[in-house]
Every structure is written in structure tokens, then in C-alpha cells.
Design a protein around this nucleic acid. Structure first.
Lengths: 236, 236
DNA sequence: GGCTGTGAATCTTTTCACAGCC
DNA sequence: GGCTGTGAAAAGATTCACAGCC
């Protein structure tokens, strides 16, 4: 991730977060969830949605784990990090559990995503249905190329990257996605950070440097294929 | 990793491989590289390319690690799994090391990629420059929608998914990329496997089941954003 | 009887720290 | 002196296996 990956996965596989919080002083009993657990929790949520849409009201670690593609023991361990929301001998209530996971993952609020780079990938991402349905709204799409600026992509008009700060402020974006060439990525990343965005998902094929307190994840498509190629060579 | 994934991935975060080889009987001294190492090796390769294009002929674990965004100790450990290609007190020869890593990762051969699903994402992937430059050639783009079939995307015409088997055979594709909606993914995955493809990269937001011996990696864009959202909530 | 929650055991990955060599 | 290569230690993640509860 993985990448993540990741993972980072992992990679997975290809992914990572910089900026640890130096031990909460907040009153609430906040739990720091391991990265690997976070990745799986989203799969559980999806599996729960599927079950719910099939009319299931109750489930078990075995069924859920099967659906999410993991082993039941680790599923139970993951869930136990959030608290005890199951019933021994019975299982979990689908709706309850989904609610608890959502809350723990911060999906209560609406996240506003700005996509930097309106190339093929940026445009594909801005139309990706999987985002809208999970509380992520794409609020801006920016690019530097004059021939692209002003063109429409879905409901959005591509904005000039020169107006980055104004656009980020006007839209209150709190997540940025970098879908730009490697050569431009670090410079744009710095700008985005300077505008106060502290969560960045990068598709650029380079290792970006970000200050502590900013969290960065990477998805590296060529890396994914290379790992596949390695396995293909060795298993094939 | 996860790259995101990945991790991953990882991957990475969001990524994984199914199908372990049950201990080689091949004569060659094949090394099984850990998943996490594989993800990093590709970063080292990239860093080496950068250095090479800057005219550097020699480097050190410190410099390379910095460039790749990892810690020097693990870089040296990763490289030591491939053999001893450095010189104590001196460092590594850029070109040599790049060559060794490429070989170890199976990048000697040309990989032929079929993209299943010619939606926004599929089209973006088929035009992604990062593939061509790393030994991956997109040889086919398939879809089920009549209004898309036959249209041109770059040099490729979109083929009818009904001809999957014929197309995969004609192009000798050895890697498939699934960029289709979740609902269609398992069915298409099965078909691709039935056609003999044993390496699959999936962007579908579900857990796919594949038989042993097939290796599957996933990149899950919504998961990446959700992990960011979690950190944003807790660090911000 | 069946399924959760969890300590203990195992396995994997990362980091440390230093011997070995140029 | 400097940098690699690598055992040993530490940290982290997964799996086992079973006590506890319905």
C-alpha cells in the first residue's frame, strides 16, 4: 500500500504518514489505531454496507471476515480496539457496528477534497463515484495549463493553479490530492502545505518531503505493477 | 503500500498477494524478497535514475535513502538481500546498482498489460506515462459498453469485453488491470484468470477472490482518503 | 453450542550498533 | 576516516487458542 498501499501496505504497500501526535492531552479517550487496522476497518465498513443492503441485521466475525477478505481473528482484534460492540455467542449488529466504525474513523464530518492537476488521472479522480458515496466531496480541480483552465469537468470548472490559495480558502478544502507529474509535485506540495492543508494524497512518482504535522499518503501505480511483475516472474 | 498502495501498501497499505510458492525447486538461487522490500526497491530505482540523470556516478546509502524517503539502515539491509554490490568506505556505483535491482525485480522483460474497463480511470491509466517508461506496455483496453467499444484512446481502440479471451491471446497480455465497478469486478476477474492471466491489479472497491497461484494487488482510492481523514481528525 | 474478546506465541519488519574493509 | 554489511535487539503485526459469556 498499498499503499498505500501501502500499505504500504505498504505498502502497503506504498503509503506512509509523517507527523506523529506527541501523545494526546485531549480529555477524550482517543485511541491511536495502527495503520494496518485503519486500512482494514474501511473494508469492514464496506462489507457491512453490503450486508445491510442485503437486509442482514446481524453478522459474525466469520462472515464479515470472509466478505472483507481477512482472517476472523484479526477482525475481532481490530474491532476490540474500538471497544466491545459484539455479543458473545451471537455476533455483531450490522447497523451498530457500522456506526461505531464510522465514528472511530472520523467519517462523521464531510471532507472537502481539492484535486491538483487536471490531467487524465485528475479528471478521472474528480468523477470517481467511490468518493462522493463515502463523505468525500471534490470541491476544486486546479491546473497550470492555459488550455485546460476554465474547461468543465463534471460540475467543476478547472481553476488556475495561480489562484491556489484563494480557491482552497473559498472552498475550505481540507484534503488535497496531487495528480501532477513528478517534476512539479514537490513545489505544489509545498504550496498546498503553505495554504494550511495538512492531509495530502499523492500520485506523483517521487518521495515528497513534508513538515511534521502534515500527513501524506502515496499511491504509486508503477510500483504496484513492478511488484506484480516480480511475483509473476518468480511464481510463474 | 500503499501505494498507497502500498500500501499498500501496503500495500500498503491496501494491497496483498495471494499464492505463495511452496519453496522453490528451481536450480537457481532465487531469493524471496519481503513485500515491504519490493516496494522500497522500486523507490531506490527511481532515486538512482534521478541521480544518474544528474550525472552522479557514485552514491551512498545516506544519499539514496534521503532521496527515496527511507532510513539508511533499512536501505542497506534491503540491498544486502540482493547481494553485496557496494564498497565499504566508498558507496555504490549508480549504474551497477540500478542494473542489479532491475534484474532482481524482473524488469528485464517487457510486460504486456491489458486494462479491463475503459471508464475515466481506465483511460487515464492507459495514457499514464509512468508505465511505458518502466517496461510496461498497455496492449489492450476493453469495455462492455457499446457506446465506448471501438472508440480510440491514444493508440488503442477499445475492444469488446466479449472478445476478452481472443484479445488477451492475440496480445499475449501477462498482467491485467481491473478498473471496473465493484459489482462487475469478481465476474471479470474470474474470466481473466480463466484466460490464464496470473497477475492482476484491481482498483475495484471489493475483496476479490482468486485461486492460489494468481497474484492480486489492490489499490483502493476511497480507503486512502479515509485513512487520511482519520489522521486529519486525530492530528488536526 | 457458539461466538466474542484477548493474553500468549509466533512471525515479520525495522532499528541499532558495530565489525570489517577500503 | 568513512561507509557497507549484518548480527542482535526492538518494535509491530498476525495468528493461535481458549476463557468468558450469551
Amino acid at each position: 500500500m498499498s499503499q498505500s498501499t501501502m500499505p504500504t501496505p505498504q505498502e502497503p504497500a506504498a503509503s506512509g504518514v509523517s507527523g506523529q501526535r506527541p501523545d494526546a492531552m485531549t480529555g477524550s479517550i482517543e485511541r491511536i489505531l495502527p495503520e494496518a487496522t485503519l486500512a482494514r476497518l474501511t473494508q469492514y465498513l464496506r462489507a457491512l454496507n453490503t450486508l445491510q443492503s442485503q437486509g442482514e441485521t446481524r453478522t459474525s466475525s466469520g462472515v464479515l471476515a470472509q466478505e472483507a477478505g481477512v482472517n476472523p481473528a484479526i477482525l475481532r482484534k481490530d474491532l476490540s480496539l474500538l471497544g466491545s460492540y459484539g455479543t458473545r455467542g451471537v455476533g455483531y449488529m450490522v447497523a451498530d457496528l457500522a456506526q461505531h466504525i464510522s465514528t472511530a474513523m472520523g467519517l462523521g464530518q464531510q471532507w472537502r477534497v481539492a484535486i491538483i492537476g487536471a490531467g487524465n488521472l485528475g479528471r478521472a479522480l474528480s468523477g470517481y463515484g467511490g468518493f462522493q458515496s463515502r463523505g468525500f466531496e471534490v470541491v476544486a480541480l486546479l491546473d497550470a495549463a492555459p488550455e485546460v483552465i476554465g474547461s468543465r469537468v463534471g460540475k467543476l470548472a478547472v481553476e488556475d493553479i495561480k489562484n491556489l490559495k484563494a480557491v482552497l480558502e473559498a472552498t475550505s478544502a481540507n484534503i488535497a490530492v496531487l495528480s501532477v507529474p513528478g517534476a512539479a509535485a514537490q513545489e505544489l506540495c509545498d504550496q498546498v502545505v503553505a495554504c494550511g492543508v495538512r492531509s495530502i494524497l499523492s500520485f506523483a512518482p517521487i518521495a515528497l518531503q513534508v513538515p511534521t504535522g502534515v500527513n501524506l499518503r502515496k499511491v504509486d501505480l508503477a510500483t504496484e505493477l513492478q511488484i506484480l511483475a516480480y511475483h509473476a516472474q518468480n511464481l510463474g
